[in-house]
């Protein structure tokens, strides 16, 4: 290839590439055809229902949860994100002492979102929330107690 031939070949290949970018650029400035960037804080984020944000415990309107304190999630967790603190309480119906959930402590800072606790739960007490606004200035705020204060076990879960 001659000297000038090489120059023209170089310009031709550059032009081929620039045609692709131009094909997107010019329709975009006239009628915003190919804009795909979502301006997140101004537009709402698209979050799908299965998104693994953080583990939450489901409570009904009477402030009752489904966790029996069986510690299956604590055993299934690979990195110690879940701690169950349980207590023995006297069952008012039978008068016997029974193992009850006191605090379901969840360390979000250690969680790897592997879903094993949710798979392990026999009573479907915990589930994923799609909340992703988890950034804090203090690491201590990432340790959460999942059962709400004053909540108790829903009737009929243990059968």
């Amino acid at each position: 290839m001659t000297y000038f031939g090489k120059i023209f070949y170089g310009i031709k290949t550059l032009w081929t590439g620039m045609k692709v970018t131009g094909g997107y650029f010019f329709p975009n400035i006239t009628r915003k055809k190919y804009v795909i960037t979502r301006q997140y804080p101004d537009e709402p984020a698209v979050v799908f229902p299965r998104f693994k944000g953080e583990v939450v415990m489901w409570h009904n309107e009477n402030n009752e949860h489904r966790c029996t304190g069986c510690q299956a999630c604590e055993i299934a967790c690979p990195n110690g994100s879940i701690e169950i603190i349980w207590k023995r309480e006297v069952d008012p119906e039978t008068g016997k002492k029974k193992k009850m959930l006191d605090q379901h402590i969840y360390h979000l800072s250690m969680c790897t979102m592997c879903s094993l606790c949710i798979q392990a739960c026999p009573t479907n007490a915990i589930m994923w929330s799609t909340n992703f606004h988890n950034a804090t200035y203090d690491r201590g705020l990432l340790t959460k107690v999942l059962n709400k204060p004053g909540s108790k076990l829903m009737a009929g879960v243990e059968e």
Partner: peptide, 26 residues
């Protein structure tokens, strides 16, 4: 987005478990 819809994560999916997959397809 396809991944996130089915597995709930975009990169570290943890979708396989011994003997199957964690969730059914979306």
């Amino acid at each position: 987005e396809i991944m996130e819809k089915t597995t709930g994560a975009r990169l570290t999916m943890s979708y396989n478990i011994p003997g199957g997959v964690m969730f059914d397809l979306h």
